[in-house]
């Protein structure tokens, strides 16, 4: 049985239906990726799972329990958290204070301050720095570390490579081997299709609010992905 299961989800911004009949299955220990163009509804889908979106209908089940109406803080305490788009650190707090906020979820587990510093050694050196003064890549490490400090069972990552240099993106993605090895199941949103296919066991492609394609990366052809990504049908060569 899957750990996280989304069925027939609609999410509205006012009268606009940003997500239409989306579905998603995440098994324990699995890493899945959601790809798609800007405005396809990827971020809206993740926000809906953690209860940060507006009006929604459909079913979101976590570990067999319906969490569709739970507030975000209760969902985080149950074990789903998110690395938000744009990092959204607590800019006036130090790196260490940012990480320690995660203790509020009161979920003991393998991810402690020491474990996060072991994963990102650079953060240990910067622990007393104000989060707002760090570089983009360092901020992304803090944002991931802060989420890990809640010891989530499911970690949602919204475009963690956005605006970062390729080398830093590579460094950060390498850390996901350690993260998944600790038992965390991961959902990645990624605009970079190659990166997504390399990191994930299963890939969904979103187009105009619904899933236009899904499958294991090795089963999907370049042409299929291109068609599903841009909505150009099967006509492409």
């Amino acid at each position: 049985m899957s750990l996280l299961s989304v069925e027939n989800l609609d999410v509205f911004y006012g009268d606009f239906r940003a997500v239409r009949g989306a579905h998603l299955e995440l098994a324990a220990g699995q890493t899945i990726a959601i790809i798609g163009a800007n405005g396809a509804g990827k971020s809206t889908l993740l926000n809906a799972i953690v209860g940060l979106s507006g009006r929604k209908s459909g079913s979101i089940r976590f570990d067999g329990r319906d969490i569709g109406r739970e507030p975000t803080d209760r969902i985080a305490r149950a074990g789903i958290t998110m690395v938000p788009e744009g990092r959204r650190l607590f800019g006036s707090l130090t790196v260490e204070d940012n990480l320690l906020v995660g203790l509020a979820a009161e979920r003991p587990g393998p991810w402690t301050l020491e474990a996060v510093y072991a994963l990102f050694p650079r953060l240990g050196e910067l622990s007393k720095m104000t989060a707002g003064s760090l570089s983009g890549g360092q901020q992304q490490m803090v944002s991931i570390g802060r989420a890990l400090m809640t010891n989530p069972r499911v970690l949602l990552c919204d475009e963690i490579s956005l605006g970062l240099a390729p080398k830093i993106i590579g460094d950060i993605y390498r850390c996901f081997e350690t993260i998944t090895a600790s038992g965390v199941s991961v959902v990645l949103i990624e605009q970079n299709v190659v990166q997504a296919c390399a990191a994930a066991d299963y890939v969904y492609c979103m187009l105009e609010g619904h899933m236009s394609l899904e499958g294991r990366p090795e089963d999907l052809s370049q042409a299929q992905i291109t068609a599903a990504y841009f909505g150009t049908g099967e006509a492409l060569p």
Binding site: T81, D97, V101, A105, R107
Partner: peptide, 17 residues
């Protein structure tokens, strides 16, 4: 610390429980 974090971003702090 939680009060300062909430003052910075009351939406994201919910993701930390």
């Amino acid at each position: 610390r939680l009060i300062r974090a909430t003052a910075d971003d009351y939406q994201v702090v919910q993701l930390q429980g």
